[in-house]
Design a protein around this nucleic acid. Structure first.
Length: 247
DNA sequence: CCCTGATTCGC
DNA sequence: GCGAATCAGG
């Protein structure tokens, strides 16, 4: 493959649009990630914070070891350290346009609790509530039964497993009449739990399963997230660069 | 390990 | 000019 104007154009647009070299390489096809990077540099397209490059030309500062008089050892090392001229002007403004990008995380699936009458989990009467941290929106994903999965940051025992409460009759209960209980599960019904174990009306979806899956079609939608091929993933900045056609 | 981008260097 | 090999941080 050669670098035709068209391909260079795509490279340039994607590169400036924030696509990674790998993505660009895949999009173009026939070239490696390295080829893309190499070409990008040859085109003069640098920038883009590199994981391995401190993008701070001013660096070196705060270098603990040498508070010595600024300049290195010039020949006529004048002992006079002071002479407060101005701190060595940073000459040309280095700031190469930091290409700021807004991290646009994929819209997390709205944590919907699907469960009729989700009764509040009355936490233990912790008298003096601990001040704790200020409430902050945390994005969680929803697992079967409406359990909120812990966000990556928080670590904490997963809520009380199954509050004893009172035992409920396994089957002959009015409210459980038409519900699918544990004993009703088989390969043909949706095993998506509704409510929480230990609660009076805990039961399972029970709908006809999506063939090949343990859940019905609807709940498969919750249980499985489509994993698109890389090439179809449009990275953060939804750049409308022209030439890219989704294959 | 995986991912990144940067750099080098033989072609 | 090209890009594989290599490097180095996350």
């Amino acid at each position: 493959m050669s670098w035709t104007d068209e391909r260079i154009d795509t490279l340039r647009k994607m590169w400036e649009g924030g696509s990674t070299a790998s993505q660009i390489a895949e999009e173009l096809g026939g070239v490696s990630r390295n080829a893309v990077i190499g070409k990008a540099h040859r085109l003069g397209l640098q920038s883009r914070p590199s994981p391995v490059k401190p993008n701070d030309p001013n660096a070196v500062k705060a270098e603990k070891p040498a508070p010595v008089a600024a300049a290195a050892p010039p020949v006529a090392a004048a002992p006079a350290p002071v002479e407060a001229k101005a701190p060595p002007a940073p000459k040309t403004a280095p700031a190469p346009k930091p290409v700021e990008r807004v991290a646009a995380p994929a819209p997390a699936p709205e944590p919907e609790i699907e469960d009729e009458d989700e009764d509040e989990i009355d936490a233990a009467p912790a008298a003096a509530a601990t001040p704790a941290a200020p409430p902050q929106p945390i994005m969680r994903s929803v697992g079967p039964g409406g359990f909120l999965r812990q966000a990556p940051g928080e670590q904490q025992a997963p809520i009380t497993p199954a509050p004893p409460r009172r035992l409920v009759p396994a089957k002959p209960s009015p409210e459980m009449a038409n519900k699918t209980s544990l004993l009703d599960l088989n390969d043909k019904v949706c095993k998506w739990p509704l409510g929480h174990p230990g609660e009076p009306d805990f039961h399972f979806c029970g709908d006809k399963v999506n063939p090949g899956f343990p859940y019905c079609v609807a709940h498969c939608g919750h249980a499985y997230q489509a994993q698109l091929p890389r090439r179809d993933r449009r990275p953060p900045p939804p750049l409308p660069f022209g030439g890219a056609r989704v294959r």
